[in-house]
Design a protein around this nucleic acid. Structure first.
Lengths: 231, 231
DNA sequence: GGCTGCATTTCGTTC
DNA sequence: GAACGAAGTGCAGCC
């Protein structure tokens, strides 16, 4: 990996056109040829970049560019598209290269999958007498997160989200529409379960007779000692 | 901005739990305290990070950690949540700091806005005799991208996307439902226009009587000489 | 390889 | 500030 701190301007032409005026920035050139342009703030997202696969070449600045103070120019061309990144360097403050080797990669634990597992394990969170049918109940249009039965023996389809948005309600609606065509299952009720449910989503759900349940991740985790060993 | 190349392991606890085994990586500490952990490949996304606002502190490794070869430890704590990032450093290969100043920021040109402008300008792309009513037609649930009239004088609501997905069809469906309650407008037809329309979205749209139109961005741009000056 | 759904999404705009 | 929609979204899983 090559790390350069330089006063530079950057131009990107591809899916959109973008320009970075002259300023001091960090330029990162990765082993796969990808280039990242970072400022000293913002978020993890670079101001501008070129994704792999691509090729980076140091080219001669034009006469006009030289007159403007450009001492070096990078031309980064994406291999599979017309995306181009051009970096015009006016001053180099630092330039070093390092051999990092291949990264073993990130190990992740739980997100929505864990919410689903916890709720399936404690399905009575939805109400007295609820029992699990199965997780990831497959249908023609995709898997229903949880299928269960309520105290009356009626089938209930549960859609789980970390953040409950309108599109989650739409998704559950499509499942319910399909499931209710099956005479063996029909009638199937819907539950929209999320850690946080947006007001618009709640309104839409209620309008369609879908019950909303707010999930307390910490409480669900606390109910179950066996998850403790995972942490 | 501080740039460190180090052999390190990283642990994140917050919205999820994640671990990076010992390896050589680039650590970036920005002026706002945010920390980025980059490998020598992948994409512009760091392997791990802490978003601002947060505080970074160099702390003493525990005795156990010291025995494992840890020579320094970073504790990064998010200011507004319980998110924590811990970096255990085993070897420092590079460490430098640089004053970058405030970045003037990125200047972007067009994406979906441009598609919308171009289609509005060449509304006959949708068919002979089409005429524009207006762009960004406001309704109680949001703006319809384009409202126009077809050859028969009937009102047509157009939803424009770069990538036509199911949620775009759902969005247009909600608009049409609302618009068709207005006796002055009713009946309102729907057109789902996108550069690329996913099969599932197309099926759903057709099922609801919504016409799908694939937009050719380059062709639209070519129809109009006046856009040339923008590039 | 393409499509689908999730993301520690991030980011901008609007209400 | 919250909410909603777009992103040069990226990314993983599955068909």
């Amino acid at each position: 990996m090559r790390v350069v701190i330089a006063r530079c301007s950057v131009d990107y032409v591809g899916r959109l056109t973008a320009h970075l005026p002259l300023a001091t920035r960090l330029l990162m050139v990765k082993a796969d040829g990808s280039v990242l342009v970072h400022s000293d703030g913002g978020s993890y997202k670079p101001l501008n970049w070129m994704a792999p696969p691509c090729r980076m070449a140091e080219v001669d600045p034009s006469d006009d560019e030289r007159e403007d103070g450009v001492i070096a120019a990078w031309a980064v061309q994406h291999t599979k598209s017309e995306d181009r990144l051009r970096v015009l360097i006016h001053e180099v403050l630092h330039d070093s290269s390092h051999d990092l080797g291949i990264d073993p990669g990130l190990v992740k634990d739980g997100v929505e999958a864990q919410l689903q597992a916890l709720l399936a394990q404690h399905i009575q969170t939805l109400g007295e007498g609820y029992s699990l049918i199965r997780r990831e109940y497959m249908t023609a249009i995709g898997p229903v997160d949880i299928m269960c039965r309520n105290a009356d023996g009626a089938t209930v389809a549960v859609e789980i989200k970390r953040r409950g948005d309108i599109d989650g309600v739409e998704q559950l609606t499509r499942y319910l529409e399909l499931l209710n065509r099956d005479p063996h299952l029909q009638p199937v009720a819907g539950v929209f379960a999320a850690q946080q449910i947006k007001p618009q989503a709640r309104t839409l759900a209620q309008d369609r007779g879908i019950r909303c349940v707010t999930l307390d991740y910490e409480a669900l985790k606390g109910m179950d000692d066996s998850t403790a060993r995972l942490f």
